[in-house]
C-alpha cells in the first residue's frame, strides 16, 4: 500500500548541464520517484541509475562531486534554487519544486555540476595559511593558546573551502583578481595562533597585494551564505584593521 502511495509522487529537477569546459551550457528536466528523507545527492544518484529525462528520452547521467555526505568536505557545493550550498544537506522535503541545480559558475565548470575549486587552494598558499614549525632541530613546544581565544578560533577553523562565499560574492568574477572571503578569514585564524603569530606580517602582506583584501566591497553576502556560520565579515574587518596598522608601521618603520 505504502509503495503505491509513494510511487505516484515524483521530484522535479531542472539541471544546468555542460558536456565539457568549452561547451555551452543547457538545461535538462528530470522527474525522480520520491522517497522519504531524500536529499539532492540521493536524487542525483537516482538519475545516475536511470538517466531518463522527463520527456522519456535517455541522456548521459548527470555528473557531480560528493564525498563526506555530512556537510564537512564542501565537495558537493552547487547552486540549488539560486543559492549556493551543499547538495548533501539540501533536503528535498525543504526545497521548492522544480528544484533547479546549477554549477557554481564563479569557478571553472569541468562538467555538469562539477567545478574546479583550485583557485581556493592557490589562495591558501598565497596567504600562507599554515603554521611553520619545521626546522633543522627540535624547536620545542610552542606557546600555549588561551582557551577563550581557542574557542573563537575554532569557529574560523570550520572553513571547508567549499567556495560558497566566493560564489555569493559580487566582487569575485572574471574582471577582478579578488581572492574572496575564505582565505582572508584563514589569515585571521593563523595569525591568532601563538606560533602562527610569529609570521603574522607575511600573511598580512599577502593580503595587501593585488587581489588581496582591498577587493572586498562589503556586500556581506559571504557571511549570510557560509554553511558553517563563520563570521567572515568580522574576519575581513579585523584583517582590515591589522593591514591598516601594518601599513602605517611600515611607513613609520616601527
Amino acid at each position: 500500500m505504502a509503495d503505491t502511495a509513494t510511487a505516484q509522487r515524483t521530484v522535479k529537477f531542472i539541471i544546468t548541464r555542460r558536456d565539457n569546459p568549452e561547451a555551452a551550457s543547457y538545461t535538462e528536466e528530470f522527474e525522480v520517484p520520491y522517497r522519504p528523507n531524500m536529499n539532492v545527492i540521493s536524487a542525483l544518484m537516482e538519475i545516475q541509475r536511470n538517466p531518463v529525462k522527463s520527456d522519456g528520452s535517455s541522456t548521459a547521467p548527470v555528473c557531480w562531486e560528493s564525498n563526506c555526505l555530512e556537510e564537512v568536505c564542501g565537495a558537493c557545493s552547487m547552486v540549488i534554487n539560486g543559492k549556493p550550498r551543499q547538495a548533501c544537506s539540501a533536503l528535498i522535503d525543504r526545497l521548492e519544486q522544480p528544484i533547479r541545480l546549477e554549477p557554481m559558475s564563479t569557478f571553472p565548470v569541468v562538467r555538469d555540476l562539477v567545478i574546479n575549486r583550485e583557485r581556493m587552494f592557490q589562495s591558501l598558499k598565497k596567504v600562507k595559511a599554515w603554521i611553520p614549525i619545521d626546522g633543522t632541530y627540535d624547536l620545542g613546544p610552542g606557546p600555549r593558546m588561551a582557551e577563550s581565544k581557542r574557542q573563537w578560533a575554532y569557529e574560523l577553523s570550520k572553513c571547508m573551502t567549499c567556495g560558497v562565499c566566493l560564489e555569493a560574492c559580487p566582487n569575485v568574477n572574471d574582471r577582478s583578481t579578488f581572492i574572496g572571503p575564505a582565505p582572508i578569514s584563514q589569515v585571521r585564524l593563523f595569525n591568532a595562533h601563538p606560533t602562527g603569530e610569529m609570521n603574522a606580517y607575511e600573511r598580512l602582506e599577502a593580503l595587501m597585494e593585488d587581489g588581496g583584501i582591498e577587493g572586498c566591497g562589503n556586500s556581506q553576502n559571504c557571511v549570510r551564505s557560509c554553511p558553517k556560520g563563520i563570521p567572515l565579515t568580522t574576519s575581513i574587518a579585523a584583517m582590515n584593521k591589522d593591514t591598516t596598522k601594518h601599513l602605517f608601521k611600515k611607513w613609520l618603520s616601527l
Partner: peptide, 21 residues
C-alpha cells in the same frame, strides 16, 4: 571599481547587498 563588481541582488536580496549595489 564599479566595472569590477557584479550586481547580484536578484539572487542575494539582503539589505547590505542592496547597499553594495
Amino acid at each position: 571599481m564599479a566595472f569590477q563588481s557584479d550586481l547580484n541582488v536578484g539572487r542575494f536580496s539582503y539589505s547590505r547587498n542592496w547597499a553594495f549595489a
